[in-house]
């Protein structure tokens, strides 16, 4: 009787421990040469969930990236999958790899940054595993309860996932970046999978080149809207940005009018930024734009229309013609 009782207790305990055990897979985003910074924010999110963190580096000749990842504190294992088939990081070839990895390790959570790559890949994986994915989280309450925004950031939703596996994309600006030094994770090869892909093919990329900091990671962002009138006038913003070490963004109006390329768009359907300082120049402040920048620490608005909605969220508002204000600001900032 006694021994049976003991055994039951032991079994229960084991089940309890097993049920509680968390292990998270973070899909590293990189360009085969170096890690994309949002992976560091995603690792911080994974740390908040608790448990072991494994990081998957899949690409073509990307062992350098795996080395970089193994030094990130908090990562306990790095899985490397080096294959020509991952050229262009197409979801059609990455999904089979992830399925094989999940089958072998049985993670409780799979995370990636909410970038074009993460957004393209995770739902495909989730459907294959019959999991309802969770997009663009901004907070973690516990291992199954997450916080995200809906309606262009105008409402905050807290949801509890009923799936046993959680597949989640992480808003980079909502989590600090993990350190790049101090860890010492073991590296091993990822499980082999049939990743042959004859349905899609990467052709080419045309990336906008810039010496300025990357938009989503910049400490200061200066954005221009329709008020800039044309593409040439954006040079004024570039000049100011260079003086301030800032990145330059744009509203949808400025992108649609062809002033600047679309990867500069800040908003619900563009990039989400949360810099220390956001300077909105000639931007009225439509809901869709605010969705992409209203978590900035300090917001400055320069607009000649005192009624522009942007002034309702701006910490400092200057009602002035931008064509006068911006060059003057560049002058003063340059003199310091």
């Amino acid at each position: 009787m006694f021994s049976r009782c003991c055994r039951t207790k032991l079994v229960n305990q084991t089940v309890y421990l097993f049920g509680r055990y968390q292990s998270t897979l973070v899909i590293a985003e990189h360009d085969n040469q170096k890690l994309i910074p949002i992976t560091l924010n995603t690792i911080t999110a994974a740390n908040k969930i608790g448990g072991d963190i494994t990081c998957l580096v899949a690409g073509t000749q990307c062992s350098k990236v795996a080395e970089e990842v193994s030094k990130i504190p908090g990562v306990s294992k790095v899985l490397l999958a080096d294959n020509e088939a991952f050229k262009g990081f197409l979801p059609e070839s990455l999904t089979p790899l992830l399925l094989a990895t999940q089958k072998q390790f049985n993670f409780s959570h799979i995370l990636a940054g909410a970038t074009a790559m993460g957004k393209g890949l995770l739902p495909r994986l989730a459907a294959k595993l019959d999991v309802s994915p969770i997009s663009d989280i901004i907070g973690i309450k516990d291992k199954e309860t997450f916080i995200r925004t809906i309606y262009a950031g105008n409402a905050i939703q807290t949801l509890k996932s009923k799936d046993s596996l959680k597949i989640i994309s992480v808003r980079g600006t909502a989590f600090e970046a993990a350190a790049l030094e101090g860890g010492n994770a073991a590296s091993e090869n990822a499980p082999s999978a049939d990743v042959k892909n004859d349905v899609s093919e990467y052709v080419s990329q045309e990336l906008s080149k810039s010496d300025r900091p990357e938009l989503t990671a910049a400490k200061t962002v200066i954005s221009g809207g329709r008020g800039m009138k044309n593409g040439e006038n954006f040079k004024m913003l570039y000049d100011l940005a260079d003086k301030m070490g800032a990145a330059v963004g744009a509203s949808r109006a400025a992108v649609d009018a062809g002033f600047v390329p679309n990867d500069m768009q800040v908003g619900q359907t563009g990039k989400i930024v949360a810099p220390d300082l956001y300077v909105a120049v000639g931007i009225s402040g439509a809901i869709q734009h605010l969705a992409g920048m209203k978590d900035s620490k300090v917001i400055v608005a320069i607009n000649k229309d005192p009624e522009a909605p942007i002034f309702q969220v701006a910490d400092y508002g200057l009602v002035q013609d931008l064509f006068k204000a911006v060059p003057e600001m560049t002058d003063i900032v340059g003199k310091k």
């Binding site: 074009a116 990467y202 990329q205 390329p261 990867d263």
Partner: peptide, 11 residues
């Protein structure tokens, strides 16, 4: 439309 610019693929 991807994060750094544009990408062409064939499906």
């Amino acid at each position: 439309e991807i994060d750094g610019g544009l990408e062409t693929i064939k499906v």
